[in-house]
């Protein structure tokens, strides 16, 4: 017999799911609907009236050099953040995995950065690299390097990438560490007897066995770099200099709330919505078909 609770009326069930429905409606469906709706209109400069333009905003958007540049910036940014957060995490995990004693201590210490909110992390890094009072930029100055991320686009990009990736290293480290611990010791030993030295073993045995974890983290980190890095960028560069760090999410904000171009901003969020959708589908497909050995 199937066990399920049956409600007599429909009032109680409705009441029970109401909070979730309410939250989704207020924070997702309503704004998403608004965005889709508004993306079809252009408001006049004073915001007094709006005019229906159909796909006009989208056509304009994809014709816009800056918007296309922002796509490129986003791609570059997310690739860099993903690499900068995953490679060191994997490296640290491999080192921690080799330890026999004290790996617990390292694990705990390495998790801490994850507890720092992105905006706070942004401020932290901003202080260190501040062009006038920053510790790191002062040292760089001593070494003869003139650090100025306020003017130099590449330096600005580097800084937001580092600040965004920093906290993520902890997160990725945890996953990699757990995955490494799950690799059977005897398989590694068998490879050693077969003649493979450390790095050979790493690339031909360990890394392939980590691939489910690696792929999962890849998706999660790309999504993170797309959407959750707003705080870091806002605190450090505000998208500058010259839009060098304006990723799509930041452009939605700056065009909509700073530039007050609600039509274009809405169209951008619709595009972004599609991108999120695509990434989510990818992720789910992956989780269903996870590579199991």
């Amino acid at each position: 017999m199937e066990k399920r609770v049956t409600f007599r009326g429909w009032m109680l069930p409705l009441l029970l799911i109401a909070p979730q429905v309410f939250i989704s409606a207020v924070f997702f469906f309503y704004p998403a609907g608004q965005a889709v709706w508004q993306s079809l209109f252009i408001p006049d400069p004073f915001g007094l009236s709006t005019q229906f333009v159909g796909m006009g905003n989208f056509e304009y958007l994809f014709g816009d050099r800056h918007y296309r540049a922002s796509f490129y910036t986003t791609a570059l940014f997310s690739i860099l953040v993903t690499l900068a957060s995953m490679i060191p995490a994997l490296f640290l995990a491999v080192l921690a995995d080799r330890l026999i004693k004290g790996s617990g201590v390292y694990r705990t210490l390495l998790i801490w950065p994850y507890a720092v909110a992105p905006a706070v992390a942004g401020v932290l890094w901003l202080f260190m690299f501040n062009t006038r009072v920053g510790v790191v930029s002062w040292y760089l100055g001593q070494l003869g390097y003139d650090w100025n991320h306020v003017l130099n686009g590449s330096e600005a990009m580097g800084l937001v990438v580092v600040a965004s990736a920093w906290g993520r290293i902890s997160y990725n480290f945890l996953f990699f560490f757990a995955a490494l611990q799950a690799v059977p010791r005897s398989v590694i030993e068998a490879a050693a007897i077969d003649g493979a030295r450390f790095w050979r073993r790493f690339f031909t045995i360990v890394l392939p066995l980590l691939s489910p974890t690696t792929f999962f983290l890849l998706v999660v980190n790309v999504v993170y770099s797309f959407f959750e890095t707003f705080g870091v960028i806002h605190t450090i560069t505000s998208g500058g200099p010259q839009q060098a760090t304006t990723i799509l999410v930041y452009k939605v904000y700056s065009d909509g709330f700073v530039g007050q171009d609600l039509g274009s901003s809405s169209a951008q969020s619709v595009v972004l919505l599609l991108v999120v959708g695509l990434l989510t589908v990818l992720q789910f497909k992956f989780i269903e078909k996870r590579v199991h050995y």
Binding site: A190, A191, A192, I193, A196, S211
Partner: peptide
Amino acid sequence: EPMDRDIAMVFQNYALYPHMTVAQNMGYG
């Protein structure tokens, strides 16, 4: 090192490389 001793070992749990085929497993060394 184990690889320099000219030995081969069969483990209790076999320790096969899960991501390789039988032929690759045998040919790895």
